[in-house]
Write a protein that binds this DNA or RNA. Structure first.
Length: 575
RNA sequence: GCCCUCGUAGCUCAGCGGAUAGAGCACCGCCCUCCGGAGGCGGUGGCGCAGGUUCGAGUCCUGCCGAGGGCGCCA
């Protein structure tokens, strides 16, 4: 698909408008939008209303002129002008039929592929991944999928927390228990806690930890080797979670990677006068940020002990991405609590000239995961919920769901029950997150996300499986007589219109960094299909209707499968 | 105290400055005994409050109220 439908309509109408009213008229963007009420057609243009003042003409006259010049005869029925100045378009059945038969409905490649960095997931090493990493990982993965599908070159960067003062105590602790037994993956969390407690209570230990940090930063071979061991250990622990999630393709480029660049980054800032001495520390002041006393709030570049904080690492990372990787888009899929910090980092990087004017750097912020009590999701003891456990419960519940369902239908559960349970359970978790507005907090509920009713992953997965079942059944009988699609019934027409709008939903995910628009669209696809299925017999109908309807089923299945894939959700041939 | 985000139906949420604000769950009615019942059709019910901008505001701006988060040397 060379272009989304909206882009095509917009482009045609834009040039028509400029032909009619001159190239210098200011046109609203977008020029065309889907209508909310089908009685107004499929798409409409309200430009006449906003042009009325500038052109000093009545909106209806402008609308008439626009309708006459639209130049959309191949796509649409003759446009209809309605008061106070809308131009309404209805897609032609013939065009829709051809378009659906062509396939390739999910993504329209961008004419200008760019290098993009999506920074997401970002676990802290020496700790197990917990629910705080869930949204970043899921949303980041989906946005990266969408960017890639549009033809951009995507770096999926895992900015792992693998550096910092805490590694001193971890190394010291590692030495002490080295004599004991080797570390198991499950011990990572306990290991961190133990080290932390000793660091607080034991002065000699604390001193040792401090020495180890210095050695590590100086590149001491032994310290470095022990550090690498810890890094490797926790990466293996995290890999279990990524495998369960079905999230791959991440490049680990952690904080340690940028350490060799920090001196240069700070020197550059100082050279440009962006960094000043304040209360013994080196800081960068950023316009518009104040602390609780109303004084200017600095970004701490170097603390009073001469150490670099994470702000410098973030600056170095951004500089590296924009300057070395040549990224034209840098997305930070990071919780909303980091908003102020990131805005400050972006601002300093811009001032330093590391971000060229055409480069966009965006904080894709998201809210908290809440329990059903409306409070931050935590275990009873107040700890963060481990991701491995959360996913485990989702899969267990999904398995139970599948088993129960098979029982109700007096069938044997599927042979690949574990895989089915994983696909459903993990899909439910992902979809529940992605289908909501990422800015707000969201309430985590296994019962809701695993329901077969409503806007859930299992609903969509079931819709897919059922369509595949029809197609399998069809394959046993007569081969299709004709690959053409006919859209005689209103339900067929409605389905075709929805399918053809898919690439626009995906485009919108890209434009706004909001996967929920694709979720809403896929749900609509499933609903419209349901109406079609109710109204239009497929296998029982006569040729050539049967073949045409099978083609619609096939196109719908393809849209569901590929759309869910962009969300990082798998489908199953059978549930 | 300042900054950010959010506030839409009983509940969970959509809603790209455009026409009569939409789904799902729950509740009420009707229809379908189907190609795998995710049923289909209809009904009840809502934009926190007050101003402003605009031909047009749930959407933009200001103030207030409420919830959450953040606010100098941890990351």
């Amino acid at each position: 698909m060379p272009q989304t439908l909206l882009a095509l309509l917009d482009e045609r109408l834009r040039s028509a408008t400029q032909l009619a009213f001159g190239a210098d008229v200011e046109l609203p963007a977008p020029l065309v939008l889907p209508t909310r009420d089908p009685k107004h057609g499929d798409y409409s243009c309200a430009a006449a209303l906003s042009l009325a003042k500038a052109l000093k003409q009545p909106p209806m006259a402008i609308a008439e002129r626009l309708a006459a010049m639209a130049g959309l005869e191949d796509l649409c029925e003759p446009p209809v002008v309605t008061p106070p100045g809308f131009v309404n378009f209805r897609l032609r059945r013939e065009w829709l039929a051809v378009r659906v038969a062509e396939g390739d409905l999910v993504a329209a490649p961008t004419p200008t592929p760019e290098i993009a960095v999506v920074d997401y997931s970002s676990p802290n090493l020496a700790k197990e991944m917990h629910v705080g990493h869930l949204r970043s990982t899921i949303i980041g993965d989906s946005l990266a999928n969408v960017l890639a599908a549009l033809g951009h070159q995507v770096h999926r960067v895992n900015h792992v927390g693998d550096w910092g003062a805490q590694f001193g105590m971890l190394l010291a602790h590692l030495e002490e228990i080295r004599s004991g037994e080797n570390l198991g993956i499950r011990d990572v969390e306990a290991f961190y806690r133990e080290a932390n407690e000793r660091d607080k209570s034991d002065e000699a230990f604390h001193e040792l930890a401090r020495r180890r940090v210095v050695e590590l930063q100086a590149g001491d071979v032994a310290a470095r080797a022990a550090w690498a061991e810890l890094v490797d250990l926790t990466k293996r622990s995290n890999q279990v979670v990524y495998d369960a999630l079905g999230v791959g393709g991440l490049e680990d480029v952690g904080e340690s990677f940028y350490q060799p660049m920090l001196d240069e980054v700070v020197a550059d800032l100082e050279h440009q006068g962006l960094c000043v001495e304040d209360q013994g520390a080196k800081v960068a002041f950023v316009d518009g940020f104040t602390n609780r006393d109303g004084d200017p709030l600095p970004l701490i570049i170097q603390n009073r002990h001469g150490g670099y904080g994470y702000a410098v690492t973030d600056l170095a990372a951004l500089r590296y991405r924009a300057v070395e990787l040549g990224a034209k888009q840098v997305l930070y899929v990071v919780d909303a609590g980091q908003s102020q910090h990131l805005q400050m980092v972006f601002s300093v990087a811009r001032k330093a000239g590391w971000i060229a004017p055409g480069v966009t750097v965006r904080h894709v912020a998201f809210g908290l995961v809440l329990g059903e009590d409306g409070k931050r999701l935590r275990t009873r003891s107040g700890d963060n919920v481990k991701l491995a456990e959360l996913l485990g419960e989702a899969v267990d519940r999904a398995r139970q769901f599948v088993v129960n369902r098979a029982e109700e239908r007096s069938e044997a559960p599927p042979d690949d029950l574990d895989e089915v349970a994983r696909v459903i359970g993990v899909g439910a978790v992902k979809y529940a997150d992605l289908s909501q507005n990422r800015q707000s907090n969201y309430v985590f509920s296994f019962d809701r996300m695993l329901s077969l009713k409503g806007n859930t992953a299992p609903y969509l997965q079931y819709a897919y499986a059922r369509i595949r079942s029809i197609l399998r059944e069809a394959a046993k009988g007569q081969p299709p007589v004709d690959l053409a699609v006919a859209l005689d019934d209103d339900a067929e027409l409605a389905l075709a219109k929805t399918l053809v709008a898919t690439a626009d939903a995906v485009a919108r995910v890209f434009d706004e960094d909001e996967p929920n628009h694709l979720c809403a669209h896929l749900y609509e696809v499933a609903q419209v299909f349901s109406r079609f299925y109710e109204a239009c017999p497929v296998l029982r109908s006569d040729e050539p209707t049967r073949s045409s309807r099978l083609a619609l089923c096939d196109a719908t299945a393809g849209v569901l499968r590929d759309g869910l894939a962009l969300l990082g959700i798998d489908v199953l041939e059978r549930l």
